[in-house]
Simulated assay, not measured.
Amino acid sequence: MSSKMQGYLFVLISMCIWGGFTIFSRLSAKWHIAAWDLTALRFALAFCILMPILIYKKDMAFLWKKESVILALIGGVAYCVTSYTAFTYAPAAHAAIFLNGCIPLCTALAAYFLFRQPFDRHTWLSLIIMMVSIAIMSYLLSQQSAHPFGLGDGLFFLSAIWWGVFTVLLRQSSLTAWQAMCSVAIWSALIYIPIYLLFLPKHLDQAAWSHIVIQSLFHGVLVVIVATLTYVEAIKRLGAFKTGSIVTLAPFIAAIIAVPLLHEPLSLAIVCGLIGIGIGALQPWRWFLYNKKTYS
């Protein structure tokens, strides 16, 4: 298999897992697994897998860097708690818009405010398209309901902010992909699990054991470990722009799948939001520029 084909295989794996994140997170609410519990399951299993590997390899020095702890607090604990909680109050289609769709917007803003990185013309165009799409969707939703937005939407957007800040800090850090993944998983477990055991409510007794095992394996292994590594390998073979563009499709596909699978409605307002945010996030005009440069 050629390097390019390997890249497409890796990006397909990443896309399936990231799309499944939306579906499985929404399912956790239906399976009576609270956000506090799901976050604990995710970090506990990842810790149990990764920590013995680091001990065996005697490669733990990077864990004591300040940036490892900061990345874990933002991209691990804060992101997971807010995003998992949001799925309790909002459908999967809202996550595609206010979480995954807004991540490029929040990342660009975080880069500007934290490191004064200016917007290029593609970013400006994306931001304008996204804001117009959200404005149109807000108007359509206001015609359908007196309360078009809820707590879940706000938490999704807060999660996008967390992930945007995390992404920018990760780019500026000296950590490799493996070190960053291990740092987030291990420090998140060390920080969150004691707080969860001592102070937070637990509802795992209300969920079926099969559901707990499924959620633990998916979030603790596939999301934390596999998706991170396949995404990095895809970037090496296909480049950041092409990989990011393809993977961005995953949450929007998940929103469509959620209609028959989770019996969630897909209104005209949500469809408009999905299309607008999708165009802004994917930046399809750059594909033409990319292909033109490739074949010129």
Rank of each mutant, 00 (worst) to 15 (best):
K58R: 15
I186F: 01
I235V: 15
W285F: 05
R237C: 11
M131S: 15
S3W: 15
L27S: 08
K66L: 04
V11E: 08
K57S: 11
T82S: 14
L200N: 11
Q172W: 04
I277M: 14
L222K: 08
R237D: 09
I70G: 00
M15L: 15
N291H: 13
W36Y: 14
S267R: 05
M1C: 12
F288S: 02
A234C: 12
M130K: 07
D59L: 12
C106G: 03
T176F: 00
W31G: 01
C272K: 01
G7A: 15
Y196D: 01
G152N: 13
R42I: 02
I70A: 01
R237Q: 15
I270D: 01
A160W: 05
G164T: 03
E233V: 02
P260E: 05
T82G: 04
F24N: 04
K293N: 07
A72G: 04
M181N: 01
L105R: 09
F87V: 08
S126E: 06
S183T: 01
V77E: 03
S83C: 09
F98T: 00
S183E: 01
V271R: 06
A258G: 04
Y295C: 07
A34P: 08
S267Q: 04
I161C: 11
L169S: 00
S142C: 10
R42E: 07
L175I: 01
I49G: 04
W124M: 03
L114P: 00
V221D: 03
M5V: 14
C182I: 02
C102N: 12
L217K: 03
Y139N: 09
S210A: 07
K57G: 03
G280M: 01
Y295A: 13
I193R: 00
R286V: 12
A29Q: 15
M5K: 14
A108Q: 10
A254Y: 06
Y8G: 09
V184A: 02
I277Y: 02
Y112F: 15
A146P: 10
V232R: 13
F113L: 10
F115D: 05
L261W: 15
T22R: 04
W285P: 10
S245W: 02
V226T: 11
F21M: 11
A110V: 06
T228E: 06
T88D: 15
